[in-house]
Simulated scan of single mutants.
Amino acid sequence: MSHSWVFATLTTASLIFATFGLNAKADAQTLTVNNIEVTNYAQSVLAMEPKRQQAFEEIKKLIGREEIPKIVCNDPSSMNSLPNQAKDIAVNYCNDSQKIVAAHSLTIERFNQITVEIQNNTALKNQIYNTLLRLQNESAAKSGARNAP
């Protein structure tokens, strides 16, 4: 995968909940994130991104040219302005995201803390960026090995 795609994914990670979000409160102190959490976070983001894009496109088709409102997963009232079918898509995305995060050994609270910290911590942002690159390269190498004659 290209570096620009990784950058776009990381940008999405730092803003992953701009459309589908979870309320995250920033603490005044710097968050310590270990290497395992960095990897788990990156894996979660990579698994969530295609689902987020699909949900966004489906909702966009349903509501037409209107701008999609900010949807906060743990604030059901943020979905009130959506038509019922679009609400269902948003709820399904939120539920899937929670499962993905849990499957990668993070709590939603911890995922949100890391998301907020990325916005304020360049070193952590770079570490996650590099981890996303590594994971994508590993995935591409595995795919290539499976598809090789």
Rank of each mutant, 00 (worst) to 15 (best):
P149R: 13
Q53V: 13
I68A: 00
A55K: 08
Y93L: 08
T115S: 12
A141F: 08
T115P: 04
A86W: 01
M48N: 05
A55R: 03
K61W: 01
S143V: 12
R146F: 15
I59C: 02
L46N: 09
A123C: 00
A47K: 12
K99N: 09
S143Q: 14
E138C: 04
L46G: 03
A145H: 14
A148S: 15
I100N: 03
E67W: 08
A140G: 09
A102F: 04
D88V: 07
Q127E: 11
Q85D: 09
N126C: 07
I118F: 07
Y129H: 07
E117R: 03
V116Q: 13
E58W: 03
G64N: 03
I89R: 00
F111L: 10
N80P: 02
L133C: 09
E67N: 10
I118H: 03
I100H: 04
I100W: 06
R110A: 04
E66R: 15
N84I: 12
L106R: 01
A47V: 05
V91E: 04
V91M: 04
N147W: 10
L62W: 06
A86S: 00
N112S: 13
A47E: 11
F56N: 12
N112L: 07
I71Y: 02
V101P: 06
I108Q: 06
L106P: 04
A103P: 01
R110L: 04
K51S: 09
V72N: 10
P69A: 01
L124N: 02
M48G: 05
K51G: 08
K70A: 15
N137G: 11
E138D: 12
L133D: 12
V116L: 12
E57T: 13
A102I: 05
C73K: 06
K61H: 07
R134G: 05
A140D: 14
V72P: 02
R146L: 15
K51N: 10
E49G: 00
T115L: 07
S77T: 14
Q113Y: 09
E117Y: 03
A90M: 00
A145M: 15
S78Y: 04
K60M: 05
L133Q: 13
E66P: 04
I63S: 06
Q53I: 12
K70Q: 15
M48K: 05
I128K: 03
N130G: 06
I89N: 00
A90C: 00
E109C: 01
I108K: 04
K51P: 02
E117L: 05
P69Q: 05
Q54T: 13
A90D: 00
C94A: 06
E58Q: 14
N120I: 07
H104M: 00
E66L: 13
T115Q: 12
V72W: 08
S143P: 09
A55N: 02
P50I: 07
L62G: 13
I118C: 07
A103K: 09
L62P: 02
N137L: 11
R52F: 14
N137R: 14
Q85L: 13
K70P: 11
K61S: 11
T122V: 05
R52N: 15
G144P: 04
I128D: 02
M79T: 09
A47C: 07
Q136A: 11
Y93T: 02
A90P: 00
R134W: 03
L133N: 14
P69M: 00
I118T: 11
A123R: 11
I114K: 02
E58I: 08
Y93V: 01
Q53F: 10
